Simulated scan of single mutants.
Amino acid sequence: MIGEMDADSVVGYFRGKSILITGSTGFLGKVLVEKILRVQPDVKKLYLLIRAPDAESAKLRIQTEIIGREIFHVLKEKHGVQFNNFIEEKICPLLGDIIYENFGLDNAQLEELSKDIDVIVNGAATTNFFERYDVAFDVNVLGVKHVCAFAAKCPKLKMLLHVSTAYVAGEQEGIIPEKPILMGETLKVGTHLDIESELILVKETMRELKASCSTEKDGRKTMKELGLKRHDTSGGQTPMSSPRQWGR
């Protein structure tokens, strides 16, 4: 009975809310989109931040990578011929990327969006253990910074949800209880990650690669090795183990 009451409370919470979701094309992202639309059809709007070269391509990604998936068959059966109209009403594609400040949106878009958002679910990430360090840093560190900066501009915002993975456990083993990590605190005693220093390291490495006229293959290899090295020297506190989830 308590579980049912909790579920009803959550479902009711989303009624009339406008929600910004990043990482919606990922494995868990599309599940979240479908779940909200199925259990709370009275949600006001789902803004989906999508990486694409243009607006039409963004719509196509939503259609093929989210709406067109098998998981949406229940919703299609429920709404029948009105399914496309329902989706058109509830889902708003946003052409942008979390690696850019303000997601790459222009001022008019940003102002309109910020005024409407009630909830932000940040699920965009790269979860590849062997990702290039510069790519992982852009997405898993700067991306989070940009999401938080946008959240601060939303006057109606009621919740910012940042989705975590087992990556945040660092080198810990066994059952890891969820507990808040204070500002400046790290998982391994004696280690420290300074974001600005890491950003400088990335930029200097890129300049060195360019100066030495390295090939693209050499550049990828160097950046991957840098990521593994920084992970080892900072006690697992690097972008490779950042609290992120859901593919981009």
Results as ranks from 00 to 15, higher is better:
E185W: 11
G190K: 05
L201H: 04
Q172A: 07
L199K: 10
I200C: 14
C154R: 13
A169P: 05
S214E: 03
L182D: 07
C213R: 03
H162W: 06
T191R: 15
T165S: 08
C213P: 09
K217G: 05
S212F: 01
L209H: 03
I175C: 10
T215Q: 06
K188I: 07
L187Y: 05
G184Q: 03
M183L: 14
R207C: 15
A169D: 09
T186R: 10
G170D: 00
K153H: 07
K156N: 05
A166D: 00
T215I: 11
V163W: 03
L199Y: 04
T215H: 01
L209R: 07
E171D: 11
H162G: 01
K153N: 08
L161K: 04
E204Q: 10
S214K: 01
V202M: 02
K203L: 04
E171K: 12
T186K: 13
K188M: 07
A152H: 01
L193N: 09
T215D: 02
I175S: 14
S212A: 13
S164I: 03
L209V: 15
S164V: 06
S197L: 06
K158I: 05
V168H: 12
I195S: 10
S164Y: 05
E216H: 14
L182G: 08
Y167G: 00
T205W: 14
M183W: 11
S197F: 11
R207L: 12
I200H: 13
D194R: 06
G174M: 00
T215N: 02
S212L: 06
D194K: 12
K156S: 06
E208H: 15
L160F: 06
A211C: 09
P155S: 04
Q172Y: 01
S212K: 14
H162D: 02
S164P: 06
L199M: 15
C154Q: 10
K210D: 13
D194I: 03
L161D: 11
E208C: 11
L201A: 07
E216P: 01
E185S: 04
Y167Q: 01
E173F: 15
T191S: 10
G174F: 01
E178Y: 07
K156C: 01
I181K: 08
T186H: 14
P180D: 09
E208G: 10
P177G: 11
K210N: 12
E208W: 09
I181E: 12
T165R: 02
L199V: 09
T205R: 13
T191A: 05
E208D: 11
C154Y: 09
V168R: 03
P155W: 12
I175M: 13
Q172V: 15
K210G: 14
A211E: 05
K158Q: 12
V163S: 06
P180S: 03
P155K: 08
L193Q: 12
E196D: 15
E208M: 07
L160C: 06
H192K: 15
C154W: 11
L161P: 08
L161R: 01
L160I: 12
E216T: 01
Y167V: 00
G190H: 04
L193A: 10
A151K: 02
C213A: 11
R207N: 07
E196V: 14
I181A: 08
A211M: 09
A151I: 12
Y167E: 00
I181T: 05
S212N: 14
A151L: 08
A166Y: 03
C154G: 03
A166V: 10
